[in-house]
Write a protein that binds this DNA or RNA. Structure first.
Lengths: 162, 162
DNA sequence: GTCCCTATACTCGGATAGCAAGTGTCCGAGTATAGGCGG
DNA sequence: CCGCCTATACTCGGACACTTGCTATCCGAGTATAGGGAC
């Protein structure tokens, strides 16, 4: 099992967007530059966030991205599912209904026990991610970062935000 | 994110092996036949289980696979990690240390907050899977299956177990 | 009748192709801006 | 001086190649067995 690299980028991008004034925008190219990642590919993931209603895009000369909702109303799970999809990681193909020991389909009314366990684990995973908002992340990041790093980031943001 | 199909097969296979008498073995081909899956491919995943010490292989004329430990001492997490690997699903590439706002590496002593959240969620996932043993699965499956299905499976097993 | 030897058939194990999804990139459609022009 | 119009430059959005890892398969190495032969 492996999450796409875009998940990491999207989470960092959302944290940065959370500190952008709500009446301004930040172009995808600036976000990519800030994180040192390929601009075109990050744009692809930002599209996913846009379609999920997490960020909103502003077109035109002074366009860019901004959060569509307050940071406190966006969970980490929202971001992860927007990029990675919301399909379960465990795929049950009902192999218990195949092979020589299979019986009529109507006999399998109870859900597959194995699937139940896997689904429960995924639910716990999602619950953890849903318990943390983007605002929580911003507070956490700001608290853990060194003063010099915060100063440098602020200076950069003053530079690019319009 | 998506788990490999082999995880499902391995879990079902382990459940079947759990009801095989401990002095007998079940060849991979029979397991594949029971579940209606490609024999060669299932064998590949059984190798992974073997290397992880979950099942043990017996070579030769009357060889096959059997559990290497009591079913109660094997967790679902053991099986999943044996097949899928134990690497974290979320990959942190430390992109916070890149780009124009980066500072000296020694300033990033605190772990990445985003990574912490993702790791915590994965820990919850693993905890759930570790709380269920293969024996639990067997009991659950046996309790949920219809009587006719159990009879048919037992008959098949009497046939193939040697 | 018993023991040993050999040939056999069956098992696992790793090395080998094919394919789908993630990765990475590009160019076109659309829009707010900025400057110039006319009134 | 003010308002309008047009050209521009910049933005997002979706369509297009490429690489990695999952899917699927095969054949070779090794071993316990079963049968036959010798004692």
């Amino acid at each position: 099992m492996q999450l796409g690299e875009g998940v990491e980028w999207a989470l960092h991008a959302v944290v940065v967007l959370a500190v952008v004034p709500s009446d301004s925008t930040l172009p995808a190219a600036r976000l990519a530059e800030y994180h040192g990642v390929p601009p075109a590919y990050l744009a692809k993931h930002l599209q996913a966030l846009s379609q999920a209603g997490i960020v909103e895009s502003v077109a035109g000369r002074r366009g860019g991205y901004r959060l569509a909702r307050p940071a406190a109303a966006i969970t980490v799970l929202d971001v992860v599912q927007a990029v990675e999809g919301s399909a379960p990681a465990f795929r049950c193909t009902e192999i218990r209904q195949r092979g020589p020991a299979a019986v009529a389909s109507r006999e399998y009314r109870a859900p597959c026990s194995i699937t139940k366990v896997m689904r429960a684990a995924e639910a716990a995973w999602r619950e953890q991610l849903a318990s943390v908002s983007v605002l929580d992340l911003v507070i956490e990041v700001a608290g853990a970062a060194s003063p010099v790093a915060i100063r440098k980031s602020s200076a950069w943001m003053q530079e690019v935000v319009r």
